Amino acid sequence: MIDADAARAAAEQRRTVAARSEPGWAAAHAGEPQLVHTVEGRPSYWVCPIVDAGGLRGFVRVTGDGKVAAHGTFGGAPSVVTGITAEEAVEIARHGTPAGAEIGAPLYVHDGPPGREAWRVEVRAGGRTTVLMVGPGGAYEWVPRDGE
């Protein structure tokens, strides 16, 4: 698995090429990469924001071996490459949980193929642990498929 500096360098190289067709990318730069894990918690790939003085312009997805898998822009105007912050994910997870529920630390994961990203948040209440996937559109309970 490459480190954050290598992911940023790969994203910056793609940003330079993509600037020919992406408005606003010419004056932008690759920001701080966000590591994306598997649901089980293993490092999987990086998502690197493309930012300028006006804020977030897009993203570059970089594989664990340093290849660029995708780049693009966002529909809407998120302020962070993850759509919401880890703190916002905790607040969304807390909504609708029983009083006194223990909310675990969020982990940024992909639930399925790369690009299907969300914050994984464990909620423990009444002797039961529920895993929630939390993103800008809300939360859903994650249930492992056979073999997971």
Rank of each mutant, 00 (worst) to 15 (best):
A101Y: 00
G24T: 06
E102L: 11
R120E: 04
V80M: 02
T129K: 13
P113F: 03
F74D: 06
A93P: 06
R94C: 01
V39A: 09
G104T: 04
V60F: 07
A125T: 09
G138M: 12
M133H: 15
A4F: 05
G24Q: 11
G100V: 03
T16M: 12
R15V: 12
T38S: 15
A6L: 14
A6C: 06
A28T: 02
F59I: 01
R20P: 01
V143W: 06
R116L: 08
E87K: 11
G72S: 12
L56A: 13
D52P: 07
A101L: 02
P98Q: 09
E91F: 00
R145G: 10
E91V: 03
G96M: 09
G96T: 10
G54I: 02
E91I: 01
T73N: 06
E88D: 08
T73F: 01
A7M: 11
G115H: 11
G58W: 05
R61M: 09
A11L: 06
G112A: 10
V47S: 05
V80Q: 04
R128V: 15
K67T: 12
L107V: 15
A30Y: 06
G55S: 11
A93E: 04
E117Y: 06
P144E: 12
D3Y: 10
V17A: 13
W46P: 03
G126H: 10
G24F: 09
I50V: 15
A93R: 04
G58T: 07
A11T: 00
A101Q: 04
H37Y: 15
R15N: 09
A18P: 08
F59M: 06
G75T: 10
A101T: 02
D3I: 05
T16A: 13
S79D: 11
G76N: 07
A70Y: 01
T82L: 07
S21A: 12
A139W: 09
E122T: 10
A28I: 04
V36H: 03
M1A: 11
G115A: 08
M1Q: 13
S21W: 14
